[in-house]
């Protein structure tokens, strides 16, 4: 029962004004300046700058590594979330806390540490190179850095969904004689897909913009292991502002498109599931 008559709380005008002006000044105007800059050179030059061979190679490296790292985390991040939610073992709380490390650890610190670990004389790199592979200073290193950076996105996206999954559906399936693996594949995984997809998209969007952790380990060879954000920096150093802006617009457009797409897919999945439940 509500005791108090509802009334408007104060501060609407104040907070709306503050939020809108801060948002406009810090975020919207600067982003508009970027779009304007890339538009100021005309469509032909924009196209030439955005699709030069070096830029295309950088997109390939960036999007390819981001997708690969996302897939690695899709498997292992989901597994980690599952193990953390469903099983009890010593050190569980510690690992759970550690999942946030990539959010909190500065990217440059992650970058130099991963490089030292995976370089030919590092503790991991020594073994890897003895086996005939190379990670540091190759495109593989980019994937390793991106796996580290984007791991929390998938774990933290899947974990709450797993926690809130009702036991009765599983129970019903078990009562009806379904084996544990069947339940995993037919009951639990379908319920997790929206969260896994959302986590993957967030991880991918974060990965294509990542800079600090990648540049130390990548080797940064143009056409081979140069990521798009680094190419933006290279263009800036050459004072090619319009060229930098053109590549930035492409990267931004892809990030936004991925996040928009995942919102739509999630909406669709949720609607389909609730439609099924009604039926």
């Amino acid at each position: 029962m509500r005791i108090f008559r509802r009334q408007a709380l104060p501060g609407f005008g104040l907070t709306l004004g503050l939020v809108l002006s801060y948002l406009t000044l810090i975020v919207l105007l600067p982003l508009a300046a970027l779009v304007l800059k890339s538009a100021s050179i005309g469509p032909h030059e924009f196209w030439a700058a955005a699709t030069s061979p070096r830029a295309l190679a950088a997109y390939r490296v960036t999007f390819g590594s981001a997708a690969l790292a996302g897939l690695v985390n899709l498997v292992f991040g989901t597994l980690l979330a599952w193990v953390l939610v469903r099983y009890r073992f010593p050190g569980r709380g510690f690992i759970d806390a550690l999942v946030d490390l990539p959010f909190a650890l500065p990217t440059a610190v992650a970058g130099i540490t991963l490089t030292a670990l995976y370089a030919g004389n590092g503790p991991l790199g020594r073994w890897i190179e003895a086996a005939g592979y190379k990670v540091a200073y190759t495109p593989n290193g980019i994937v390793v850095a991106l796996v580290f950076v984007s791991l929390p996105f998938i774990v933290r996206s899947v974990q709450p969904v797993l926690e809130s999954l009702e036991a009765d559906v599983e129970e019903a399936a078990a009562t009806l004689g379904a084996g544990r693996l069947t339940i995993l594949a037919k009951v639990i995984l379908p319920a997790l897909w929206p969260a896994i997809l959302a986590g993957f998209a967030l991880a991918f969007a974060r990965s294509i913009g990542e800079y600090g952790s990648v540049i130390f380990i990548a080797g940064n060879m143009p056409m081979v292991s140069e990521i798009a954000p680094l190419l933006i920096v290279a263009k800036l150093d050459q004072r090619d502002y319009a060229g930098a802006a053109a590549i930035a617009v492409v990267i931004l457009a892809v990030s936004f498109a991925v996040l928009l797409a995942i919102n739509l897919v999630q909406l669709w999945l949720v609607r389909r599931r609730s439609a099924k439940a009604v039926r």
């Binding site: 982003l31 970027l34 913009g209 800079y211 600090g212 954000p229 800036l236 930035a248 990267i251 990030s255």
Partner: peptide, 11 residues
């Protein structure tokens, strides 16, 4: 959060 840090500097 969806903007690359490099682009945040660039703008």
């Amino acid at each position: 959060f969806a903007v690359s840090p490099v682009i945040a500097g660039l703008v």
